[in-house]
Amino acid sequence: MYLADEAWPDLESYFESESLALVPLGSTEQHGPHLPESTDHVIAESLAREAAARSGYLCTPTVNVGISRHHRQFPGTMWVSPDTFRAYVRDLTENLTYHGIDRVVYVNAHGGNVDALREVAKDLHADETCYALEWMWDESIPELVDDLFEHNGPHGGPKETAMLQHLTDLVHDDRLADARDGGVRDIWSAEGTNRHGAATFFDARDNSDNGVFGDQTDATAEKGERLFEAATDQLVRLCDWLAAREPEELLPEPRV
């Protein structure tokens, strides 16, 4: 069920019987020479809407711009500050609680959003506003990701490339070799990324000339379909688990 497509009487019926919502969040940022800047929010919205269609839970419109300042050197990247992002997500979530939602899954597809979403979720839980969880699609299926790709890469790599090949016709397949050769296959072994236990980089441009990591030539639409199906299954299972919890199970533990 997609909130923006429904009339208010139908939404009223949903809120009378269910109290869970999926909120997709991504980014609008560079993903190398081969992927669109919509990559993260396309993945997040596609997973959230598919999980909602399969389960009957509510999916909200997507937050398309996130915390992406570390990609700012590449043309077109958009970003907001962490403070702005946290405040916006909190307000959006409290909007849902006004209608009766008390449990939320942040369907996230951008690593830069993770810390802020978890912080918002902690605050919402601490003041008993609602129970929210940050869910990152690739972290739900790590074994499959590792099995499918030898050089995965945390950004613009084959897992995101394969997902976009499956979901859209926006991938520049003729640029996959250029993306691999102009980027870095393994960021964690790249020279200058770590000194004596400290990460010594701040921006994607510090480590990769074209902003991406991994071997993009290893991606196929068939692999993307396997990723999408497996991640959707995990998301539906998470929603079912959360919906089945009694309200008192979702409250903070009492003070010692």
Rank of each mutant, 00 (worst) to 15 (best):
F202E: 14
R86V: 03
L144D: 02
A4G: 15
D203E: 13
P9V: 01
R180S: 12
A199G: 07
L167S: 10
A48W: 05
L35A: 12
T93M: 06
D10R: 13
E253V: 00
L35C: 08
D40M: 08
W135R: 12
V256Q: 07
K223C: 04
A52I: 05
G112D: 01
F228P: 11
A116I: 01
N194L: 11
L124R: 07
L227Y: 02
G211L: 06
P154E: 09
G156Y: 09
F74Q: 09
Q234D: 14
E191V: 13
H110P: 05
L96F: 06
R72C: 03
I67M: 03
T62S: 11
T129I: 13
V120A: 07
M78D: 00
R69S: 05
E128P: 02
D218Q: 15
A53T: 09
E12W: 04
P24C: 12
D138M: 08
L47D: 07
N152V: 10
Q73W: 09
V105K: 10
P33E: 13
A109Y: 11
S38R: 11
E29L: 03
D240S: 12
A204E: 06
G56C: 07
H166F: 14
D174E: 15
H71W: 11
S19K: 09
I101V: 15
T97K: 05
L35F: 09
D218L: 04
E143P: 00
L235R: 12
E37G: 14
D233M: 02
S46A: 15
D40T: 12
H125M: 08
F202R: 10
W188Y: 12
L235M: 12
R255T: 03
D218K: 02
E160M: 06
F15I: 04
T217C: 14
L22R: 02
T84N: 08
R72Y: 09
V65N: 06
R237H: 11
F149A: 00
L148H: 07
V256K: 06
F149L: 03
E139W: 09
E50R: 15
T193P: 01
P61I: 09
G56W: 06
H31C: 02
L133K: 10
V23S: 07
L164V: 14
R195P: 01
G157K: 04
D127L: 04
D209T: 13
D173N: 08
E249D: 14
H70Y: 12
D174L: 04
L117E: 05
D138K: 07
Q165R: 12
T193I: 08
P82W: 11
F202G: 14
R245Y: 01
F149R: 03
V105P: 12
Q30W: 15
T39K: 11
K159W: 11
V184C: 08
W135L: 14
N194G: 00
E150L: 03
H172R: 15
D40E: 14
E45I: 04
V105H: 06
D178A: 15
E6I: 00
D203Q: 08
A44E: 08
E253W: 01
A48Q: 07
R69H: 10
R180P: 00
F15R: 03
